[in-house]
Design a protein around this nucleic acid. Structure first.
Lengths: 228, 228
DNA sequence: GCAAAAGTGTTTATGTTACACCCATGT
DNA sequence: ACATGGGTGTAACATAAACACTTTTGC
């Protein structure tokens, strides 16, 4: 019997903090627990890691099973392993955070069986386990990351207006930003492509743009700082 | 039997990337493996997590057991869980990185039983498991972190000269820095306290400074950017 | 024609970069 | 007295911040 097997093992789970943006505020996707413990409470989507899958696959599988979300931006956040964080016994959780575009959002009620629902970041219900702590850490990470990595685009439609992305930055950073300075700086990076398409609606149409990842990657390799 | 126990479980380990600075180059502390697999190979210090300890405690315990290091700066890095990363079976490792001051370095040969030794970052031996990948990630993290968080001081003696800290930044960032600009900026932050003590040695004595964490924390709370 | 959001430049202040010489000590 | 590393200021340049009005559309 290999050395490995002489030790009792903690159980291993993954949990996902799923962020969305509705045009004015940051939101988080939660699921209502259908089993004990914390039956009926809201929690982060997640579950046990299987023996043959890697950690990211486990996170993506749970995400799809519980929220129908596929092919989202997903990045590892932190691992939580306080004894006592799960009343069932020793459970270590590898936490991830995901960013999803509005056009990827699951239609409400689409999720099979137990409920999943979006909550505004400043109107969250109490959460099961230590999920509030995990969520707080994910939010910190997002706030830090968005300032020097182009992750904001993962929360917007593929084609978006400059006003939309400014609203996103203002919502996440929690302060207003000067419109002219913001646009000047963002466009100077030269990884946003202005399209010949415009929004419709009640007022002056706004030009749509898309993020050019190739251009960004090229710049990033040349040792480049984002810093919005 | 609780739900938790129905699943086969990966084994859980912690591994630590321990950085040091010898005045001119960054170094990593490795241990020579005394058991299979990879017997005789160099590896990151680490080992299995016990059922009753949290992840950080496990990392600190293994660090002390294998390298005699205590009370070092320690921060979680990432969790690695590719099936196949350990030939013994499914093993998930929560990786950490540590920063140790020269005056904390274990005297060579102090470490009980199997060897531990410092290696220069650009002269590393091949490593066991996927430890090269873990180390590469730790190095990336350190390079990124040192630019906007005051972690560099954790690699220097409590009292240090400005030339020492500049050498540290140059070694980690891999480029030379202008002496006058570096000192101007660093001192302007006002969290370095100049002492009335000086180095001895062959040349003009250099003033010693210490890092004032209270002042730094106060600044940091007022929403403050380091950015060297 | 009015309400609502889109779009656009210039000036000022601040921060960053480049750069060269004198000082204090031990040998 | 010389070799070695310690220490210091200023000017040019680049980036960031502040700031207000005109345009386009739907109603």
């Amino acid at each position: 019997m290999p050395h490995t097997y002489e030790f009792p093992r903690p159980a291993l789970t993954v949990d996902c903090v799923v962020f969305g943006f509705d045009g004015s505020g940051l939101q988080v996707l939660l699921v209502k627990r259908g089993i004990e413990p914390f039956l009926g409470a809201w929690a982060l989507p997640g579950g046990f890691v299987r023996m043959e899958e890697n950690l990211e696959s486990a996170a993506r599988r749970e995400l799809e099973e519980e929220t129908s979300l596929r092919e989202v931006f997903l990045e590892q956040l932190y691992s939580f392993g306080e004894p006592g964080r799960d009343p069932r016994g020793r459970v270590v959780s590898v936490a991830w955070y995901a960013l999803v575009r509005p056009d990827q959002h699951p239609p409400k009620g689409d999720t099979d069986a137990s409920d999943a629902a979006w909550f505004p970041i400043d109107g969250l219900p109490g959460l099961a386990f230590d999920h509030e702590r995990i969520l707080a850490m994910a939010l910190d990470r997002l706030r830090g990351k968005i300032r020097y990595q182009p992750v904001g685009f993962e929360l917007l439609p593929k084609r978006f207006t400059l006003t939309q992305i400014q609203a996103l930055y203002e919502a996440i950073l929690g302060r207003t930003i000067d419109k002219r300075n913001f646009r000047k700086k963002l466009l100077a990076f030269d990884f946003l492509i202005p399209l010949e398409e415009f929004t419709g609606g009640a007022h002056r149409p706004a030009r749509l743009h898309r993020f050019d990842r190739r251009k960004y990657d090229a710049l990033a390799k040349r040792g480049f700082l984002f810093e919005l």
